[in-house]
Design a protein around this nucleic acid. Sequence first.
DNA 1: GTGAAAGCGCTAACAG
DNA 2: CTGTTAGCGCTTTCAC
Lengths: 349, 349
Amino acid sequence: MARRKQAVTIRHVAAASGVSLQTVSRVINNEANVRAETKSRVQAAIDSLGYVPSIAAQRMSGSRSYLILAINDRERTIADWRARQGTDWVDQMLLGGMLTCAEHGYRMIFELIDTHSDHVERELLAAIAALQPDGIILTPPHSDNPQIVTLMAEQDMPFVRIGSQRADAGIPVTMDDEGSARTATDHLIAAGHRRIGFIAGPADYELSGWRVDGWRAAMAAAGLDTAGLLDVGDFSRASGHAAAQRLLDAPSRPTAIIASNDQMAMATLDVAGQLGLAVPDDLSIISFDNTPIVQFAQPPLTAIDQPIAATASKAVEMIISHLKGEPTPAVLTTVPASLIRRASVAVRG
Amino acid sequence: MARRKQAVTIRHVAAASGVSLQTVSRVINNEANVRAETKSRVQAAIDSLGYVPSIAAQRMSGSRSYLILAINDRERTIADWRARQGTDWVDQMLLGGMLTCAEHGYRMIFELIDTHSDHVERELLAAIAALQPDGIILTPPHSDNPQIVTLMAEQDMPFVRIGSQRADAGIPVTMDDEGSARTATDHLIAAGHRRIGFIAGPADYELSGWRVDGWRAAMAAAGLDTAGLLDVGDFSRASGHAAAQRLLDAPSRPTAIIASNDQMAMATLDVAGQLGLAVPDDLSIISFDNTPIVQFAQPPLTAIDQPIAATASKAVEMIISHLKGEPTPAVLTTVPASLIRRASVAVRG
DNA sequence: GTGAAAGCGCTAACAG
DNA sequence: CTGTTAGCGCTTTCAC
């Protein structure tokens, strides 16, 4: 492979428009101190030559790389991809993140990093050193991983923590997990349910706790007891199966169950079938996430829709605005989720 | 934001190990002409300092960027993301492409480009100029878009054309569309079907034609007529609906239909329901792609599984091997697809 | 307002 | 086998 050089460089533009490199640079970066007439002449040269600055060169000279790194958990992401169950977290992140990046002349680059490994730090630092991104987006469970957050805090690089509420480092953005859990619970209470079970997610996701909090709060507000109605899974179908089984085997069987993700909700549906419980007549179900599969369940599941695309978009905007030196919002940014009503909730006579 | 400099550079490593920059560079790039002892000393310094080369600097100096660009159709990709029907083409590409890139120290960066726009060329050239990737992966319908292929051929940059069979430029890789269509058709013939309808994809995807060819060949080999059994859609659900309707309204109604993608197959299922035809008893259906939704259809659909992850992985390997100067395979690379049997095909007495 | 010079981190080309 | 020199394309810093 021959030594690959840029086809059109800033030098060509400078020559074509009869100005110095510096002036072209000023036009590219939309800086002040360029006469309008000069600017338009340079711009014309840029357009006619089809010049696009090399981000490698821009980075080298100490400016931006126009790259934003979005980091997801390797193990879970690959497992989801292999399972082919339609989990579309990555797609929705790309939808919101890539398009918003593109609007601002940035590019999103997607990386997978192990949370549990003892070399998280090395992996992350290697990605940063190699790519030199302008900002980083952390998703759960990374966004609450103290090792990662501490490391990031030392980097002098803006980073957003999706699914975190902690203001200790980075910019937290949440999807209103507590409020969503309250909404789901209230929806069931309004339908006449009294014993509403809840299958929580794993503890290394802080949002797992917030969802439990929302459910507890709604139950308490309605004067309902939660004893024996809480169980825990790890977001896997198998764990949801076990949790649903325990909940439905209990002496005071719930008439409704809220599961903290779709896979566990689907497992609950399976268990109901095995126990001969009709959904929604004998058991109502609400799930979290609203990935594609729940539309195709029998019956289609009522679900809390996680606004992943909107959140990723927001995350990108916050990083870029931080880069521009604009002040970071003082209050926690919350992207609202919504309840999608389908056929898995029955009104209880 | 302060001028961001690399934390650890090649200079630090050189100083720490008492050699020149060039020697460190040789070690990094695993070049010859370094004494084993020197090499291990340098490597030790690299490890202890946690040094990772900056890809921007590597690119600037005329070497690799270690970036491979995967290009998909903007309109269709975004439509799929928004529809949230579980189409996992992108996920499977990332699964195969990203992981294989990572194995070789490369990174895959994902770009969306409009096929139909009149500024495809500008978009593509801008991406190349900005990122300076080492290779490009084109997917359908880009891989057969003459404008794009011609442009790429002028770039002196290796590119793989997924879903193309043309050896005129770039490296073609196919997923055996013709063979798969034959397999699906033979499967139905073996089950006793004689009138097997086929819903083709749009003409701007060359693979649409190959699938029709495979169906035709299998029908001919079995001595079956295809008159009145072919219709066309554009991969959308609506077009599949219309095509299925025409096929099933015809005087000699088919007993089985093969649809060129999942959405059109799902539409066929809908039409069957509307016409009061039981699937599979009155109408058998086979779809192409095997995206997650077909598992959840009622009944679950027998489908040709498109090996997207394996193909993307292969594409990356071919680019990297080309970069290493290894010879490009003389014969067309074909990644085999497989038939996944589910409940939508009935044996015909 | 505009330009000239220096340097970012790395590798190609050439010396030895 | 190892080192030196020059330069990639761009922006920073400083001059004018």
